[in-house]
Design a protein around this nucleic acid. Structure first.
Length: 286
DNA sequence: GCAGCGACCATACACCAAGC
DNA sequence: GCTTGGTGTATGGTCGCTGC
């Protein structure tokens, strides 16, 4: 078998630098998400060429997982790319980023994700948030997700989601995202499917965490200040159904304004800044 | 059940332009 | 002329859908 000819095998092009920095920020990216990040080309085949170079070189800087059918609807879905340890090392060595802590890299052996679309949509939201923040002079201080982990399962046996919020006793819940924009704190939930009953059930956890200040305690927030929770729905119908049902939930009587909802379609087609609170009032995210 | 089709993604190759 | 960075287009694989 002849050795594969790897383009740019001993160098990192500008596009590849942008890909590496993107992966360090978002942990996982599909090729279409990389294109939306303006990595330096708008042409899918050329991006792929750059990815192959990073993936197939002697010491790979990225790896990818392929998904024959995670939740098949329309044939094959995009692969998800992520950094290798060598990729992280090269980012630091070449000065693409200076802080090791801000480089996201999967811990341990990554397995096939059953939550492919949920994960992809969560990253889509983060990309839109960053784009909006960059265009409006805002700073996203951090964005942790439920698939970011802390600890380890080999020696410490303490691997847990970074966004986990503990209640009293052994009770806890894991929001899909936690982030801060210009000193304002947010939780984030991505709701796939149309099961509004499940959404209501989970929102009660949010109500409890907000009302009893469990989130404040975990993230060391000022207990006099409330934070907002972003609810992103895969389907507009699900969002509308929730808005109706939540009106009859007494435990939400005083906290409906602290939840902001939108559908994926609205996220991609409308202004990012405008959201709808659970009383049906249009509000700016900040 | 199965063939045909369309949608979508991965991959490959030909080609172009600019800079050195 | 070579390298780098990029585009255009074709092909192949996988999967869901549809009609017979």
């Amino acid at each position: 078998m002849t050795a594969k000819n790897i383009l740019w095998a001993h160098t990192i092009t500008n596009i590849q630098e942008n890909i590496l920095v993107g992966l360090a920020r978002y942990k996982f990216l599909t090729s279409s998400q990389m294109l939306s990040l303006n990595v330096g080309t708008k042409h899918y085949p050329y991006l792929w060429k750059q990815l192959v170079s990073l993936r197939d070189r002697n010491k790979p800087l990225v790896q990818c997982h392929n998904f024959p059918a995670p939740n098949p609807r329309k044939g094959r879905v995009e692969s998800m790319y992520f950094l290798t340890k060598e990729g992280k090392r090269q980012i630091l060595q070449n000065g693409f980023m200076s802080s090791e802590e801000t480089i996201k890299i999967p811990i341990g052996k990554t397995i096939a994700y059953k939550d492919y679309f949920h994960r992809k949509y969560t990253i889509d939201f983060q990309i839109q948030l960053d784009t909006w923040a960059n265009e409006n002079n805002k700073t996203v201080e951090f964005f942790d997700t439920y698939f970011d982990k802390t600890g380890n399962n080999r020696t410490g046996k303490n691997l847990r989601a970074k966004t986990r919020i503990d209640f009293t006793g052994n009770d806890f819940f894991i929001p899909d995202g936690v982030f801060k924009v210009d000193d304002q704190f947010f939780l984030f939930e991505m709701y796939n499917g149309k099961d509004t009953g499940r959404v209501i059930e989970q929102l009660h956890k949010h109500a409890e965490a907000l009302t009893y200040r469990y989130t404040h305690k975990t993230y060391n927030l000022d207990t006099k200040k409330a934070y907002k929770t972003i609810l992103l729905f895969e389907f507009l119908l699900a969002k509308n159904a929730l808005l109706q049902r939540i009106q009859n939930e007494p435990s939400f009587e005083f906290i409906r304004p602290y939840f902001l909802a939108k559908s994926l379609e609205e996220l991609h087609q409308e202004s990012f800044v405008l959201w709808m609170d659970l009383e049906g009032v249009s509000k700016k995210i900040i």
